[in-house]
Design a binder for these strands. Sequence first.
DNA 1: CCGATTTATGCAATTTCATTGCATAAATCC
DNA 2: GGATTTATGCAATGAAATTGCATAAATCGG
Lengths: 154, 154
Amino acid sequence: MSLDSFDRALLDAVQRDATTAQHALGEQVNLSSAAVNRRLKKLTADGVIRKTVALVDPASVGYSLTVITEVQVENERLDLLDAMKRTFMACPQVQQCYYVAGEYDFVLIMQVKHMEQYTELTRALFFESNNVKRFNTLVSMSNLKVGLEVPLLA
Amino acid sequence: MSLDSFDRALLDAVQRDATTAQHALGEQVNLSSAAVNRRLKKLTADGVIRKTVALVDPASVGYSLTVITEVQVENERLDLLDAMKRTFMACPQVQQCYYVAGEYDFVLIMQVKHMEQYTELTRALFFESNNVKRFNTLVSMSNLKVGLEVPLLA
DNA sequence: CCGATTTATGCAATTTCATTGCATAAATCC
DNA sequence: GGATTTATGCAATGAAATTGCATAAATCGG
């Protein structure tokens, strides 16, 4: 599963725009459309391309608030942590969830309709958990950069 | 630019998997492939679909460390803030950047190859800025959930 | 370093998919 | 409630993805 410069160039192209036709990608990287097709297929089969998705503008569908929440747990017992992970991951408003080292244990990136919905969710996710010592809420005033692109040229 | 339940169902489908053929989407939501095509085109033109991208697995391309950094600024002068925003946004390893209210001013989600690269970047992004009062680093031990999906059914 | 094997490539044919004209149905607007 | 706008399905068209095949490049073993 080693990637050459063709693969990297293709990955960089499709992670920016996956709608580009394969023959056009081929021109960019100097490959035939058949080669592009086979490489992309292999990259997908190998899991280098996790998935191809449409990015929906949250505000356009009523989700105009982004909140980042740091969560500190009470007890680090594995089964308790696992239960929390599952709860967080099952919540659709939790867009991203990181288990981190340091003072806090989890960082959540949440998409909510409005502050009221966030307040509700804190109840369900944090207060009703019996293992949250405290949490800290960072309200985003501006989502300056939002994406999942990985540096491939640098 | 109002969205009906067809639109929402389509958005939900393509934000999970944008490779699904339009006739297949049509079956899921009970529309012809032509209708699906026209709706998706309109959703894209209207900016509801921001873009369609391939999600690249960071670890597969050597980016195995995710770090979340909270940054507190020294001075909130607009021109200084703007300069910082530009610096952050221009850095490819800064995958996401949020301008937040509260104790800290920025939250960055960074993808780096290893801790050493992060250390380098802190120098360039924070120490060499003359407007960072302090920053706090949260190292991700596990990226439990990573995505940009917006709740559309809930 | 060279021949043998594996792997990747381009071309062209095929197939699948996206796209559009058109007539009809649904929804919206006086 | 009729007129206009808008969305739909069907079917034809066009474009794109996919695959067989022969060739070229790369890799491997001695």
